[in-house]
């Protein structure tokens, strides 16, 4: 039945997942071209010094992309479930309800993590042709926070989306925005390195939030 649930999510999300994958995959040649271009104009040694001296992060254009990806995926997965309350159909399946939701969340977050990690790894390996690990580790320390923000945004979007009452939806949205803001407080490449445990904690907590909305949906809470 896990396969059936994954099958449903796959049919629902495959085109979006393809689009997200393309954006992330497409960013890899973009970043490499961007870097080699700058090398050509400034010269490699000089540009290395600029990167180090000015704490430059050439993949910073990635900053909000994982956030958007998580947000859109979360909404695309659960807005159809909320249309005409068709989540009732899903919860009516002869399968434990919490497990059904958990598997749906696992599908969404799993695909997101796969896209992030595969494209992230390929980007790292491609850039390591041109740059030493000292620079790349710094860049990807900063980028890790952006990827984690995308994952948190996914769970928070689902939480807000399933919530049946509009007033509570608004409150949840504000809280979600506050949570997401925590991920974008970095000013230099390494400034978020001690915040990673917090971010992972937030993600683990926000995984539980959608279930609260499901409970409320199930109880038929209305204003």
């Amino acid at each position: 039945m896990t396969r059936a649930i994954f099958y449903k999510e796959w049919i629902k999300l495959r085109w979006l997942l393809l689009a997200i994958s393309l954006v992330f995959a497409g960013s890899i040649p973009y970043f490499i071209l961007n870097l080699t271009n700058k090398f050509r104009f400034a010269g490699k040694p000089h540009f290395w010094s600029v990167i180090v001296g000015k704490d430059l992060n050439l993949i910073s254009e990635l900053t909000y992309i994982p956030l958007l990806a998580g947000l859109i995926l979360g909404l695309a997965q659960f807005v159809p479930e909320m249309q005409k309350k068709s989540l009732k159909l899903t919860l009516h399946l002869p399968h434990p309800e919490k497990l059904t939701i958990l598997k749906m969340l696992l599908f969404g977050s799993g695909t997101l993590v796969s896209i992030f990690s595969i494209t992230g790894l390929v980007l790292y390996l491609s850039l390591s042709i041109y740059l030493p690990s000292q620079i790349l580790v710094a860049w990807f320390t900063a980028a890790l926070a952006w990827y984690l923000a995308g994952l948190a945004a996914y769970f928070l979007a689902v939480w807000v989306c399933i919530e049946p009452v509009w007033k509570q939806k608004a409150i949840n949205t504000l809280l979600a925005i506050a949570v997401i803001m925590l991920f974008f407080k970095g000013t230099s490449t390494y400034s978020l390195q001690y915040a990673m445990p917090l971010y992972i904690g937030i993600i683990l907590l926000s995984m539980c939030f959608p279930f609260y909305s499901v409970f409320r949906f199930k109880e038929g809470v209305q204003q």
Partner: peptide, 12 residues
């Protein structure tokens, strides 16, 4: 506070 005037590191 997440930020501090005494540090560039962000954490609560």
């Amino acid at each position: 506070e997440m930020k501090s005037m005494y540090s560039k590191f962000v954490y609560p």
